[in-house]
Every structure is written in structure tokens, then in C-alpha cells.
């Protein structure tokens, strides 16, 4: 099956989420690779912004906040490569949610392995190296279309991350930070693999999985819709502070 390869570069959190949704609505099978500037915290669809995020600290540090269309937890996006995959349900990946996580993450795993990183899929939706998380993904399905997006950590700064995120129990903050530091890895730790090589490796792994990848651009319609979603949804408190 043929996919469009979109490299949209760096955008702010709201625009990144607006583009993902716009591509999903457009239904064109797409692999998108992107980054975040400024850094951003994204929260899962069901999370409460105020419960999860230290908004004052985010403002002080110039970090964006945005609610995702997908469930899951709060993520600090800084030094990472993010992917998103859009494809109609049942067309190319398992209709079953758990199965499709495994298949899509499997491509990322292959790409990382081609770089000499001993990555493994850890159900439901993580990729780990030596048991430490290097990539997390989240999926939604709407109108028969799958959107899965996920991070590939190039570098991780646990202290900054936890200065921006609230912890459920302040009494055990130190313990939570320690376990996050032990539980999370990054490509910098594993030999300092740069973003360019990771991007190429993911694209190659996608092609090796038997799919065609044709470099493309956002269509005029997708751009307009993304801009509309940006102004009417992802930059609005009605969405970001919905819960």
C-alpha cells in the first residue's frame, strides 16, 4: 500500500495536533514525521490540564500546553522525533486496537534496530530498550480512520519534565522522579544517534515492511483545515481545559 511521507518539521503544540487531526479527517494514508518548537506538554484526551500540568512553570519556561485527540498520559515533548500514522481501519493494519499498536510500533522497532538499538515492543503501546522506555504511542479511531502518534526520545531531561508535570502525590515526588529516570532511556544515552539518522531509519523500515512511501506535502484543503482547527480548537481553553 502507498503512503504519503510528510515531513512538517518543527511546529508548536497546537499546530502539531491540528495537523494530525486535519490529516486524519483527510483520510490520505500518511506517515508524518515532526518535531516541537517551542517544547510542549501534551496531555491525554481524558486528563485534566490543571491536575496534570504546572501551568505557571510552563509559562515561565516558555513551554506550550495542548490536549491531544488521543488518550494516554501527559508527555513532555522536547528533544524527540514524533511520528504520526493515518490509515483507514482494516486497510493495512489489524482492525484490532492492540494488534495494530503492535504492528505500527513494530515498524519503529525495526527502524531503531537498524541503528543498532536493541529495541523491543512492550505491550500495549511502548517501545523499550533493556526494559527502559524509549518510545510511547497513542491511538484514536474516528470515522473508520486510525490515527496513531508517538514519540521517539532523542534525549530526555527528567528534571525539567517533572518541573512541568504535577505528580499525584507530592510526598513521593522524589521516588517518582527516580523511577522515571530509571525507566526511561533515549537515543543520546544509547550512543548519540541524531535526528537525521532516526528519520531515515524510520522511513527505510517503513519501506522494508512492504509499503511504498512517496514524499508529499499537505494539500491546500488539509492546510486550511489545520489552520481552522488551530484557531478554533487546539489554541482554545474550551478544548485544552475541557477536563
Amino acid at each position: 500500500m502507498e503512503y504519503r511521507l510528510l515531513e512538517t518539521g518543527a511546529n508548536n503544540g497546537a499546530m502539531n495536533m491540528a495537523i494530525d487531526e486535519s490529516v486524519m479527517i483527510g483520510r490520505i494514508p500518511t506517515l508524518r514525521l515532526y518535531t516541537w518548537s517551542p517544547p510542549a506538554v501534551s496531555i491525554g484526551y481524558f486528563q485534566s490540564m490543571e491536575q496534570e500540568v504546572d501551568l505557571k512553570e510552563c509559562r515561565t519556561r516558555g513551554v506550550d500546553v495542548v490536549r491531544r485527540l488521543t488518550g494516554g498520559g501527559a508527555v513532555y515533548h522536547d528533544k524527540e522525533l514524533t511520528y504520526s500514522l493515518v490509515v483507514e481501519e482494516g486497510k493495512d493494519f489489524s482492525s484490532d486496537i492492540l494488534g495494530s499498536y503492535k504492528e505500527i510500533c513494530g515498524i519503529i522497532v525495526s527502524g531503531l534496530r537498524s541503528l543498532g538499538v536493541e529495541a523491543e515492543f512492550r505491550p500495549v503501546n511502548d517501545i523499550v530498550v533493556d526494559g527502559r522506555k524509549i518510545s510511547g504511542s497513542a491511538q484514536t479511531r474516528r470515522e473508520g480512520v486510525i490515527l496513531q502518534h508517538g514519540t521517539i526520545l532523542l534525549d530526555v531531561d527528567v528534571e525539567t519534565m517533572f518541573s512541568l508535570l504535577k505528580v499525584p502525590d507530592e510526598k513521593i515526588r522524589d521516588k517518582i522522579i527516580k523511577s522515571a529516570r530509571e525507566g526511561v532511556s533515549s537515543l543520546r544515552e544509547l550512543g548519540g544517534i541524531g535526528i537525521g539518522r532516526v528519520r531515515e531509519a524510520i522511513e527505510e523500515a517503513f519501506k522494508k515492511s512492504g509499503r511504498r512511501l512517496v514524499r508529499g506535502e499537505l494539500s491546500k484543503e488539509e492546510k486550511e483545515r489545520a489552520l481552522n482547527l488551530y484557531t478554533t480548537k487546539y489554541t482554545r481553553k474550551e478544548w485544552n481545559f475541557m477536563r
Binding site: F46, S48, Q51, G71, G72, G73, R141, R142, P168, R243
Partner: peptide, 27 residues
Amino acid sequence: MVRIQMELNGDRITNIRITGDFFLHPE
């Protein structure tokens, strides 16, 4: 994590908000 915030009148729920890092389709 599932986080519940609710208001009760007697033992009846008058308002409830369920938040957390889970996945539910459709959301």
C-alpha cells in the same frame, strides 16, 4: 490512573468528572 471527582447529595451523585491516562474508544 483513574481520577474521580464527584459531588453527592446524600448518597446520590449530582456531578462527576472522570479523568486519567487511560484509553477509551470512542473517546
